[in-house]
Design a protein around this nucleic acid. Sequence first.
RNA 1: GCCCCCGUGGCGGAAUUGGUAGACGCGUCCGACUCAAAAUCGGAUGUCGAAAGGCUUGCCGGUUCGAGUCCGGCCGGGGGUACCA
Length: 861
Amino acid sequence: MTAEADTGASAAAGTESRFDPAQADGRWQARWDAEQTFRADSSSPKPKTMVLEMFPYPSGRIHMGHVRNYTMGDVLARARRMQGHAVLHPMGWDAFGMPAENAAMERKVHPGDWTRANIAAMRAQLKRLGLAIDWSREFATCDPEYYGHEQALFLDLFEAGLVDRRDAWVNWDPVDNTVLANEQVIDGRGWRSGAPVERRKLTQWFLKITAFADELAADLASLDQWPDKVRLMQENWIGKSRGLRFTFAVDAPPSGVPASLDVFTTRPDTLFGASFAAVAIDHPLAATVAAGSPQAQAFIADCRATGTAASEIETAEKKGFDTGLSVVHPLDASRRLPVFIANFVLMDYGTGAIFGCPAHDQRDLDFARKYMLPVPRVVALPGEEQTPIGDEAYTGPGRIINSQFLDGLEVEAAKAEVIARAEAQGWGQGTTVFRLRDWGVSRQRYWGTPIPIIHCEACGAVPVPKADLPVVLPEDVTFDKPGKLLDIHPTWKHVPCPKCGKPAVRETDTLDTFVDSSWYFIRFASQPADRPFDRAEAESWLPVAQYIGGVEHAILHLLYSRFFTRALAHMGQIGITEPFKGLFTQGMVTHETYRSAAGEWLEPGAVRKQGDALVEVATGAPVDLGRIEKMSKSKKNVVDPDAILDRYGADAARWFMLSDSPPERDLQWSLAGIEGAARFVQRLWRVALLAKDPATGDPGSEPGAGEALTRLTHKAIDGITNDIDKLQFNKAVARAYELSNAIEKAAPSVARTEAAHTLLRLVAPMVPHVAEEAWAMLGQPGLIADAPWPVADPALLVDDEVTYAVQVNGKLRETVVLPKGLPRAEVEAAVMALPRIQELTAGAPPKKLIVVPDRLVNIVP
RNA sequence: GCCCCCGUGGCGGAAUUGGUAGACGCGUCCGACUCAAAAUCGGAUGUCGAAAGGCUUGCCGGUUCGAGUCCGGCCGGGGGUACCA
């Protein structure tokens, strides 16, 4: 593509036969900027729509995944504007987090400087895409203004009893001296240091997400514009289970040992199948036993040493330590069950203790076999009552056996019966247990929101007075040694206690960055200086009509945001409980991978096609084509958006992102694809040129080809409008091609001129620069971004003739064009009169004749 | 292991939700324009067959007048998740 010398800076270089993005893109972007075209007006009387894409982490450069994500949202935002909505389409930066600290350590730059430089670079890149964003609302979560408001919200949660401080087991990296998230532990080792991760008990701040577990699960049903997949993942994550919580009496407890042991089960129906009880290694009872038993201590230490990696857990053998204690069976006081400390019992689910029913639980069975415990069957299908349990526990349906008063009951009835009896006799209670755990938000990091708490020896944990917010991170820190910089800093943490005025210290942990992203959408909607948000203004935009992002956030971010919004509603700060009405999870951008003969990854630019083979550009050496994978630096299959924008322009990049692949699926980047998209942008320009000399007359009444084109145009309006509503951009693209094809083939007419104008408006959200350029070239007033969206005439959507498919025995034999809405009898007559049908039926009357009006006739001879 | 999703031409993918499979794009081939190239334009393109016609939506079965679409069972690919009692 050669940038031909332009005749000048005129917006509508009408005689140009080519559209030149290098010259036009920036010009239109500047114009939108100057006119504040996409500024969101909170006081607008128009219907309000907030379109949001998950805001980026400022890693330094945007990648194609960003381009795809933001293009999709942009199409929707622009279409809604044209459809008469007041639209809020904001952009900001999820700017706290570890990469900035890593960069600081590696390059000796301050995380803030690094982050802000990245933001500047990425903002410039995003602006080149021509996104319809209200940049006046931009912020970064590392702005003290933003995190100061976040600290205020934290204090509100604290006051409302939704914040807790307690001991918790964490993954501790002894080299980096920090807590690691579960995702950062790979095969039991810290992902950066490679050091074996220790389990350590630390005092941590928690947000009480479990207070809303039931609501968070139940209200998933109301999110009918979310992908089923995401709702299901959240449901599984919350993990609601109905069951029985009950108390075992400890048989003759030695001194110091509690007299009872609480357990939880979802299978109270199998209680007569119990053959042991077990507690987690972290259970208080285990600690009590260990206090008097070196062997128990050794066992617990041994279990703790086992890694937490999935692979290790999967292969880990069931192990137990017999405490020598026993408990009394609650339904049969004559029975005793031995109590073990077992490695497969989890402290943080249920009560941290179980009863073991080997016949009907696989883990219990593995354990029982190892320790030669009995395996009594208590559930069986008819006829299988005597079938012994082998190596597989039976977890299916059936009737209860060997269980006294439960015998003969179905599983569900037996559960209810045991729960009722436990409640009546006072040793247990039906209850609901969640897998979801409270959200530990303490991070031993510098680059995050300081937790606004001051620890005073006399007064305990004291909230920072709101007047003293924000608690600002100190800038003067160095990164030569790992560890908690806020703790090491000579002065920062030392402050007087707000209550008693005595010397005290600040909390030196910072908040998990997921807290930052749990309310940013509210701040986008409303950003007063003196408080986190204005309720009325926020509610005027929220919930987000359409949220778009990667499925990798299906649980964490989306669940935390739902919780945070709900917590704000609980405190009376906002009137919505669900932040995102519509959710869309888009696919990744992938690319072929290339490997040299030596097995090294090659960049796409270093490879060219030679005949059917691939060779290295530099050496001509053969290249192996690898798998198609997500673009990643390690595989070198990355295509840089800037280079694409330089060469093809924003519209081609946007069009390609929307073409071909359904948005929820992966999109394979290819040279052919971007070139095809660039070709379409030029074609669109030529289509617009066709409309330059408008004919006169009434397009609706033009006979023949003109009328057909008008009908097609209105079908395109209808189709593309629906496609964009459903985010099915690939279909909208296909329809735009169809209309372009038809316009190019049509003879000059009013209908053709009209069709071209309509097409421009329909594709304007997708390829806004060429659309503006063509709009101006055609002498249309104002910006196409402000033009009203075309409206389909319903009368033109239906044809007066339809093509019937004529089947014999379900096989297509003939087609026939008949007037639309023809009565059934006439359709039958017309079809039976067809020579081909006469031939096939030999004139005999059919046994059966199915007529689908205006569509198809099936003859069963 | 459990849960979910997906298998349609050489490729990406359409298919009004049970009604003419393969829209649209890419690629390929033929042709036009050109001194030539690029760009552009016209045509062909699931498969077998000269044609008539047959076959065809991962495989096997079922329901139905009719199945890419619904049901059952396999095979293959992808994702999520896990000692959750």
